[in-house]
């Protein structure tokens, strides 16, 4: 077997193994996460206007808008 082919197989093999491990981990995480295909989001997720604060501020008078 030539050196270029050997080296290519080594790199490609490592890449495929890493990719397979990552995909498996992602799949397991996804299955355990119980993601619903359809679900009702919060009002904030549906009606979001660019410029709205991204995180709730504990010092705000009314925090209900973030719930």
């Amino acid at each position: 077997m030539s050196t270029p082919l050997l080296f290519w197989l080594l790199v490609f093999g490592a890449f495929v193994i890493v990719l397979a491990l990552r995909l498996t981990a992602a799949l397991i995480h996804h299955l355990h996460g119980r993601h619903h295909i359809f679900e009702a989001g919060t009002e904030r997720e549906i009606v979001y206007i660019p410029g709205d604060p991204l995180h709730p501020d504990e010092n705000d008078y009314e925090d209900n808008e973030y719930v």
Partner: peptide, 12 residues
């Protein structure tokens, strides 16, 4: 190094 080795797939 990794990208160039895999980038040579066409050539190989």
């Amino acid at each position: 190094l990794v990208s160039s080795v895999l980038g040579a797939t066409d050539m190989l």
